[in-house]
Amino acid sequence: MPPHPLHPGAEDNDMLRQAALLTRDLHGPNPLIYWIDCFGSAAIGYAALLGAIASGNAALTVALVLLSISALYRAVLFIHEITHLDHRLLPGFRTAWNVGVGATVLLPSFLYEGIHAVHHSRVHYGTERDPEYLPLAHMRPWTLPLFTLAAVLMPALLLLRFGILGPLSWVIPPLRRLLVERFSSLEVNPAYRRPAPEGAFARRWVAQEAAASVVAIAILATAALGIMPLRAFALYCVVVAGVALLNQTRTLVAHLWENDGGQLSLTDQYRDSTNVPPAFPGALWAPVGLRFHALHHLLPRLPYHALPEAHRRLKATLPAPSAYHEANYRSLTVLLVRLGRATVHRGKDHPVPPEGSQHPC
């Protein structure tokens, strides 16, 4: 990681205190922004997909598919906000998102709710118990393209999960246990085993899974019977795969992935995460505030639309010795290169020079 004035494991208490004080007025989600941004993006994405299906022009089809991927990617990433929202402040949003976005693209929010909370735990972050962490910087170089390109399989896996295995699992208990443990989470750690849901969350899980299964079965059945044209089925799969590929690429640079499994202080969790402040093209490949991923780990309850202002305040107020400046990077490319070099120079005897950090972003 970049050099810093603190000993590893120590907390930058001034940064933590200032972060809390400077953002006290930013914690309320703006309902208008959430509803318009999320469902406006979804509407654009669906309209572009329908236009691509109807189009007879190859260039126009490609352009509309790319627009659909970009817009639906933004709408899908509100699943991250759903995991952090106080839903009393935004009533109905989770249900509407699951009906209008989650079920349609086979990504209901139960796949992420509960999982992401473990990732934010001070005890579990970066350890083998973290479902969203792998020490990618310590792995072989070929793992990075494999990790990224695996996202292309997402449409087939989701159709299998919700269209075939999900319905069967309700009458085959051993399959149900396997499905809950191994195939009901948006995770990057293959060793993670998900516990069975309980209480109100279990009831939401059943409703969301049923909705996604209805959509998946309808897609598979109409495609098999020739009711849905093969072109429409293929373009739907291309869009879902594109959304997954974009998200997998973003995931590659959300952290430095340098932790070797030990517990980290909150400050070092922040250092192992990244901010890419430039709005363009950051807002395209990391929308809904996710270009401020390190700041999000520092202040996980802050709504996405408040993160740019929070970053501005902290950057302007905190002095250079603060750990806050160490997690800011220029671009996606800088972080991809850094991670690639880390896999080439694996091991503590061959550290990666910390270029790309401490930029005036």
Rank of each mutant, 00 (worst) to 15 (best):
W285H: 14
P354V: 08
L153Q: 09
Y304A: 11
I79D: 12
V171K: 10
R271S: 06
L146H: 05
F233H: 13
S213H: 08
H7I: 14
A342Q: 15
A212K: 01
A286Q: 01
F93R: 05
S121A: 10
L22Y: 06
A212I: 04
R129T: 09
A75C: 03
L50Q: 12
N98Y: 04
E128S: 14
R250Y: 09
P360A: 15
A59T: 13
Y329G: 07
A310E: 02
L256A: 13
S322H: 10
N259Y: 06
N13G: 15
A254T: 12
T251K: 08
W257I: 00
F93N: 07
T127K: 08
V214R: 06
V76Y: 12
R338H: 13
A286V: 03
A191K: 14
L146P: 00
A150R: 13
H138E: 15
L318A: 06
L22E: 03
L266C: 05
F201I: 09
V334N: 12
P197N: 04
T23R: 08
G261A: 07
P5N: 04
L77Y: 04
L314C: 06
R204A: 15
A117L: 05
A43C: 11
V105H: 00
L22K: 01
G56Y: 04
I217H: 01
L64G: 02
Y46W: 15
G282M: 04
L307S: 01
P173V: 05
A323P: 03
E258G: 08
E309S: 08
V334Q: 14
W170Q: 14
N57K: 03
L146K: 02
F183E: 02
P195G: 01
L50P: 03
A232V: 07
V352P: 00
A10K: 05
A241G: 07
G56R: 06
A75M: 02
L225N: 10
A63C: 09
A218I: 03
I36R: 08
Y125I: 01
L158S: 10
I33C: 05
Q263S: 09
A306F: 11
